[in-house]
Design a protein around this nucleic acid. Sequence first.
DNA 1: GCCAACGTTGGC
DNA 2: GCCAACGTTGGC
Length: 155
Amino acid sequence: MAYWLMKSEPDEFSIKDLQAKQQAPWDGVRNYQARNFIREMQPEDQVFFYHSSCKQVGIAGVMSIVGTSYEDPLAVKKNSPYFDEKSLIENRWSAIDVKFEKAFEKIISLQAIKKLAQHDHRLDDLLLIKKGNRLSVMPISSAQWQCLMQQVDSI
DNA sequence: GCCAACGTTGGC
DNA sequence: GCCAACGTTGGC
């Protein structure tokens, strides 16, 4: 089983929205590296739900992967903001279904993660806090996952 | 709203 | 294949 982190702007789609729906497609990813990670995902993989571009940036909860990736329907939907003309002739973009697992009582803030990384070497290679990294989908090692989950328990 | 950093596009 | 210009991401 693998671990991941996926970003969403809570104004668009938040952990609460997922909680209400329980399951939802994760779509609209338009970056090749992120797309390739989506294609690697397997059922039951665990995923951090990260809130970006908002007042409280950080990890807001956990979801899990359902099934495997499929062609993103929004890419071929003409009136969608995620429509991509080139998708009509080739399978360019992928989506995957995610299931709600838990919403943290308190968000693990980006600031707290950065602070923790100063002392805990398990977070040394955490892509989230690498300078200039803008990936919206990224792999998380099991050591990193454990480290961050411990942080949840200690709050 | 600002801006650093990155990805993509397209001319050459 | 290079690289300038542009668009986007995302923290602050």
